[in-house]
Structure formats: structure tokens, C-alpha cells
Design a protein around this nucleic acid. Structure first.
Lengths: 360, 360
DNA sequence: ATTGTCTATTTGTCTATACAATAATACTGC
DNA sequence: GCAGTATTATTGTATAGACAAATAGACAAT
């Protein structure tokens, strides 16, 4: 029997629970009709008012929908979920690097599709990310765009599971998390770095320093691209001029690495900066030391941030598109598309300006 | 009588409506007990089940709360309102000018107080702002931080009323709307411009050009500060070198104004740029024309955006603080503080770099 | 072919009644 | 004074029955 009349649990509540179970277990599926009130009465032996109370509660919390004369139907949770039109985006810092461009790309697409974007700054800290996570769940976001923090894989994994446990889809933007099967939108960092390094080699540079943050998947891929380009040209890697430390770094930290790199400038003729922000720091540090770029040292960056005052040869990443594509992907998941995790890779383009001197 | 038995409107609904009216009109106030089901029965002549249906609905939508044995009480809407922890922020473009800094200031304070921030880009267009508005209302934001668009006062007024009609408080950040009594957080643009112009005069400049967007209240105030400084020093205003056009401008539009201003460079020795973004454009345009700053023309800006590569003397606005204060203010309103619209003015500081040549 | 009418079914509204659970308050016994 | 007990008002749960309103679908009228 469905209802235990002797139980202290109210009978309407027993019926309500039973109905929810049937729905959750797929016995009653979305858009199916559930038994009519009369049938439920025969099934349970309860009075119609009691049945109405149970069904009414389920209507209130969005499990069922009633149609006069037609019966009561199971509501499609996914469809309902799609009605909450808020998506969370977790970015290290909206003020730095490509963050504004990415956020704008995502927001434009969100607005176009009648969704709103909650902005969260993580400062690359998993503690902050987790605080945001709890708030976002409470705000009933229906999806998450996440730029993984510069922290161990495990930390990022736990963060993501907080959402997936609740059936809230997550898309990784730009950076990925090794070993995790999650949707991911990124650019071709390996190919980009390979092209960029090959360009330096073509310009006559053979001793090329590189400085990057190896806590970030994107920059690790760039390192691999750099190594591949050297290998293709039979140039051995000089570990003395490969600075690949892991961590969430402040400008001050980078400054130290840059200074020590500039101290060893007899070992190389060009620097590959892991991203434009480092490139800018290198530029201003070099200038303060009286060094000319590209006169004394050639320099390339990665990102193509807007500078206007400093003419950096760099790899243009389609960051605005990256934001848009991330949002499109998360929306398709919210709308119920399931299947294998997808990986979208956008092409980058070399932008040749005047921070590289030809040596040949 | 409260209930019209002959009406086609269901009696439970009539009772429900009546109760809501009593609450909204303050007959039953927050935390008051409403009549017990028995009393309502005597009052209306309805059966208890009907009364329970009416009251039950009001409990569901958050008007009332029932306590077994104690009675039914009016819920404090404000208290409930405070539970929705989302605030909307409408900014022209997260990618340009001080927007990232402002957004970060607001988001940090929001996170500190367990609130979330929905980011909206308006591109200074009231059409986009209105589209966002509808979405934000649907998302049930409990407050709005708004940077007015570069559009006529009326447009901005209508936008704000959309929210105030629904008891959603609005705080204006940075820019204001003339003639509207709304909370406002800004910087001392008049004093800042006065100081900045006085500085130029102290450096020996007497013919000072100014270029700004007069659609923005902030820049209008800066124009007044500029005029006041000239007046204090008995310098007449030369209308030929005051470019104060109104509109939402693209870089290309500004470029034209700048070019025409640079054509007349015999009439002035220094340019006061209405904001740093124009200053940057002036700098690069001048450089393309072979002009040196400050050698040929002195230049000051307003904002203190991070440049690193171009050393601009400018007025530092505490934008991060502006974002934080805006959020603090909106939260105090959300929490029920009422009273006269407040106006918070933050101090700016002159940052002396090397874009001004001393003429004396 | 379109429009109107009827019928059966299902949910929507409403009454009258009963007992249960809860908790503030008063009372009782020590 | 204080712990336990009884009282009692109030909401919570439940039943049985009735009529209303909407509407899909069948059928009739135009």
C-alpha cells in the first residue's frame, strides 16, 4: 500500500512523497499525466481533499501542473530550470588581463538570450571561489562559467562537484583542469606558442627565454608549444632561461622573476612572455634599467590586450569570442543537451608589431 | 461586507485580496497577528476550509506566516526582501575606462556582505538599459547601482522609475541626473577640475584647451571647475578651444574632435582632457602627427587609469571606493533605511607625472 | 466548412465536521 | 519557588459530499 494510515507522518505528505519518488525515478515522466484525483482516491483510499493537498503542494514547488478538465501533469524540471535565467561567471579579477573582454563577450551573449550574468572575482583563490559558490547556489544560478584558479587540481575539482552534484552545469573558460571531463572552451595555446616561437626563430633568434605561470593549464600548453618549436629547429632548451613557476602571483612576485631574468640577459636575445601582463612588466622594468626593446632585447607577449602606447608583437586571442562561446555552451547544457563533455578550441593569430628585432 | 457571495470571483480569492489590502494599507502591520481562522469565519461567514485556502495562499507567497496554537502573523516584507541577495549594476562597458575598477569595488563589498552582483553593459544606450531593467526585475534584484547613460534626462528618469515603482532602490554611481532626488555617490569633480586647472595655470599655462562630453554630469562639473579656475585668475574663456559636445561617443567621434583641436594648436599651450581615455587618444594622435608631449603641448587627464607606458599627469579618482560606497549605500536602503536621498562625495587627488611642461 | 450545442470528465470552489498536535498559561503538589 | 500537570486556544490533518467551471470531443444546425 502507498499510504500507512497508522503512521505519524501525515497521509497527504506520504502521498506527496510517493508522487515525488515516482517522478524522480521516472515512473511518471515529464509531460506524462499522473492519475486523476479520483483514481488517486481509489489507489490510496484517501479523501479527495487530502489528495488535493498533496498534489497542490507539488504544484506549488513546481513538480506538477494542473489543467482543468485535462488532468494533472508532470512538469519538465529542465524546462523549469531554464526559466531561472541567471548564470554565474567566476573570473580571477575583472580588472586584470583579458577579464573585461571575456566578461563582455559572455554578457553580450547572455543579454541576447535573455539571461543575466553574476560576476564573481576569485583572485585565483579557491577559498574565495568556494564562498562565491555557496552564494551562487543560493541565488539559484542555472549554470556556471569558471576560469579555474591557480590552485591544485583537487581544489578545483571539489569546487566543480559542488555544482554538478546539484545538476548545475559548469563550463571551463580558457584554462582547464587536467583529468576532469568537463566542457571547456579555450584557444589553441600549443599551436599559438609554437607559431610565436617559430616566428622568433625565423627572425634570427635562437636563444629565447620564456617566463610563465605553470599553475595555469594555458601557459603549460604554451610552454609545450615553445619546446616543440625549439625541437623542430634542433635548438636545445636552456633550463636557465625557462622560468615556469607555479602559483597565484602578484605583480611583485613576477617582478622578482623578471629582474633575475634580466640579470642573465647575455644568455638570450628574445623573451617569450607567458602573457601580455608579464610582457608589460618586462617592458617597463627593462626601460627603467635603460634597456631598449627591441633594440637590446626582443619581446613577444600573448593575449593582445589593448595598450595603445606600447607596440608589442603578440598572439591575439579571440577573448571576446571565448566569452561568447562559453556562454553559448553553458546555455545549451542548461537547455538539456547532454552527451560527452565538449571541447571548443578557438584559433589565435600572430599580431606583428615592433617589439621584435630581426637578427639576420 | 468583505465577501460578495454572488460574485463570480471565488470567495477564497476575495478574502485573500482583502487580507492583502489590509496588509498593504498598514491595517495589519508587520508582526501583527491577523484574526484567527475562527474569527475570520465569523467575520466573513465562510467555512474554515475556505479561509485556510485564502490564508494558505498568502503564506505561500510570503505575506503571512502561521504558528500552530499561536495564530497567523504578518510577515515583514522588508525582512523577506533582504533575503534575495542580488544587486544589479549597470555600467556603460566593463571593458572601458574605470568600469572594471568600479565593478571590482562593488563586487568585493557585495561578497563581503553575502550579496551577488549582476553585471549589465549599457553602451550608454537607454534601449539596452531598459532591456536589462526588465530582466533584472524578473531576476528579483533587491537593488540597482546605475551609471546614467549619456542620454537625455527624461530617458534616465523613466528607467529609474521602473525600479522605484516596484520599491527597488536605485543608487547613481559617478554620474548624476539633474533634477532627480536619488541617492548618489560621486567624486568632487568641480573641485578636482578647479585644482587641475589651477595647477596648469601655476605651471605657467594661460591658454588652456578643454575637451569633454557634456552629456555626462561629471564632465559638466569639470567644465565648471575649469571655468572657475580661469575666472579666479582673470583669464577669459576662449570658446574656440572649449569642445564640450553632448552624446554617447565612439573613439572615432572623439578622434575628429581631437584632430580639429590639434589643428588649432596655436591658440593654446595645454589641453585638459575630460577623462583619461580622451587623454590617451590625444597622446597617440599627437605622436602620430610628430608632436611631443609635453614638449609641444602639455596634457592633463582625469581618472588615473592604469597605463604604465605613458606618464600622464591626471586627477586620481577613488573609483574602487566609489564602487564600494555605492554598494554600501544600496544595501542600507535594501535593509530598510529610508529618509532623504543621500549624496556621498569622495575626494580626488592630483597625481603629478610628466605630461605637463613648466612654462615659467 | 463553420458555428453552435451538448456531454462527459476533470479540476476548482466550498461547506460542515472531527480529531490531532502544539504550546502558552494557569494550576497543583511538593 | 519549582517541577510537573491540566487547560485551552490555535493551527494541522482528514473525511464526505456538493456544485461550478472549463474544455475536448461528439454531434447538430446553419
Amino acid at each position: 500500500m502507498i499510504i500507512d494510515k497508522s503512521s505519524p507522518i501525515p497521509q497527504y505528505f506520504q502521498l506527496q512523497t510517493w508522487l515525488m519518488e515516482q517522478i524522480d525515478q521516472g515512473v511518471f515522466r515529464p509531460d506524462d499525466q499522473v492519475p486523476t484525483e479520483k483514481e488517486l482516491g481509489q489507489l490510496t483510499g484517501l479523501a479527495r481533499a487530502t489528495i488535493r493537498q498533496a498534489v497542490g503542494n507539488l504544484v506549488n514547488i513546481g513538480y506538477l501542473v494542473r489543467h482543468r478538465r485535462l488532468g494533472t501533469y508532470v512538469l519538465d524540471r529542465k524546462k523549469e530550470n531554464g526559466k531561472r535565467t541567471i548564470i554565474g561567471i567566476l573570473i580571477p579579477d575583472i580588472r586584470t588581463g583579458y577579464a573585461p573582454e571575456l566578461a563582455r563577450g559572455a554578457e553580450d551573449e547572455a543579454a541576447r538570450q535573455s539571461h543575466s550574468l553574476i560576476l564573481c572575482n576569485t583572485d585565483d583563490s579557491y577559498i574565495m571561489a568556494n564562498r562565491h559558490a555557496d552564494r551562487l547556489i543560493e541565488a539559484q544560478v542555472s549554470g556556471i562559467i569558471f576560469i579555474p584558479t591557480a590552485n591544485p587540481v583537487e581544489r578545483n575539482r571539489l569546487f566543480i562537484e559542488k555544482f554538478t552534484r546539484r545538476d548545475i552545469p559548469v563550463v571551463l573558460a580558457d584554462r582547464t583542469i587536467p583529468g576532469m571531463a568537463v566542457d571547456h572552451v579555450t584557444t589553441d595555446n600549443f599551436q599559438g606558442a609554437l607559431d610565436l616561437t617559430s616566428y622568433l626563430i625565423k627572425m634570427g633568434h635562437r636563444r629565447i627565454a620564456i617566463i610563465l605561470n605553470s599553475a595555469l593549464s594555458t601557459e603549460r600548453e604554451r610552454l609545450e608549444g615553445y619546446q616543440a618549436a625549439l625541437a623542430q629547429n634542433d635548438i636545445p632548451v636552456d633550463p636557465e632561461i625557462v622560468i615556469a613557476e607555479a602559483g597565484p602571483f602578484s605583480n611583485e612576485h613576477y617582478q622578482e622573476y623578471i629582474s633575475s631574468l634580466l640579470d642573465r640577459r647575455d644568455r638570450y636575445t628574445a623573451i617569450f612572455a607567458g602573457h601580455d601582463r608579464i610582457a608589460r612588466l618586462i617592458y617597463s622594468t627593462a626601460r627603467d634599467l635603460g634597456l631598449d626593446i627591441p633594440g637590446d632585447i626582443s619581446l613577444v607577449g600573448y593575449d593582445d590586450l589593448p595598450f595603445t602606447t606600447f607596440s608589442l608583437t603578440t598572439m591575439l586571442q579571440p577573448i571576446y569570442e571565448l566569452g561568447r562561446e562559453s556562454l553559448k555552451l553553458i546555455l545549451s547544457r542548461i537547455r538539456g543537451e547532454n552527451g560527452e563533455p565538449r571541447r571548443i578550441v578557438l584559433k589565435s593569430n600572430l599580431v606583428e608589431r615592433s617589439s621584435v628585432k630581426a637578427l639576420n
